[in-house]
């Protein structure tokens, strides 16, 4: 990430020689978008973390995630109960298309994995979230319907196949590369 960050900034600064006036506003605009994103992020968080704390204090979380937890112990190679439960909740919410609800659980699982130094699980959880497991592409269907599509929802099948194939590939590549790196040396970072 450090390399990408430096490369983009230096290249952009070089290109900005043609139009130096646009450089600063673009940066400020980026920061403004970040602030706006964080405000909406907090709104989602206040709701879902508030609710999940209530559920946790009532002892509901333990029950709900118990079913998926054995699988998560295995997938993420972890022994941490809380981490596995959070990861299970993250994956479930993602698949149901509740993206906002998935994020807090994902971060909680991430922190727990970091605490037990489980780099493998951190990477895998990121790969699963960044390659987007989504069963119903609601945004796209709504957009097609509003633009007068004859059958707005017929995008469902190709989108499902495509997203499933990509998630599968991403996980497969990650697993293969992780193994390769850790077999040969620990230099791959």
């Amino acid at each position: 990430m450090n390399v990408i960050f430096c490369a983009v900034f230096i290249a952009a600064a070089v290109l900005a020689a043609a139009d130096p006036e646009a450089f600063l506003p673009a940066l400020i605009d980026g920061a403004e978008q970040a602030a706006a994103a964080c405000v909406s992020l907090f709104c989602i968080y206040a709701l879902w973390m508030g609710l999940s704390r209530v559920a946790q204090d009532a002892g509901i979380n333990d029950g709900a995630a118990r079913a998926l937890r054995p699988a998560c112990f295995k997938i993420f190679a972890t022994r941490n109960k809380q981490a596995a439960a959070a990861a299970a909740a993250n994956l479930t919410c993602n698949m149901l298309g509740l993206g906002g609800a998935a994020t807090p659980y994902g971060i909680a699982a991430m922190r727990a994995f970091e605490r037990e130094n489980n780099d493998f699980a951190c990477g895998l959880l990121f790969v699963l979230n960044a390659s987007s497991v989504q069963l119903i592409p609601s945004t796209v269907i709504a957009l097609r319907a509003s633009c007068g599509s004859a059958a707005a929802a017929d995008i469902f099948l190709p989108a499902l196949i495509c997203t499933a194939a990509c998630t599968f590939t991403a996980v497969a590549i990650y697993l293969a590369m992780y193994r390769l790196c850790h077999l040969s040396s620990r230099r791959c970072s």
């Binding site: 991430m110 895998l124 990121f126 979230n129 590939t169 996980v171 590369m177 970072s189």
Partner: peptide, 21 residues
């Protein structure tokens, strides 16, 4: 979002896998 805070190494691998997919 997911890797904020942690500044450990070993983050390039998952990113590369996702970029390819």
């Amino acid at each position: 979002l997911y890797f904020a805070g942690g500044n450990k190494k070993g983050r390039a691998l998952p990113l590369a896998a996702v970029a390819f997919s």
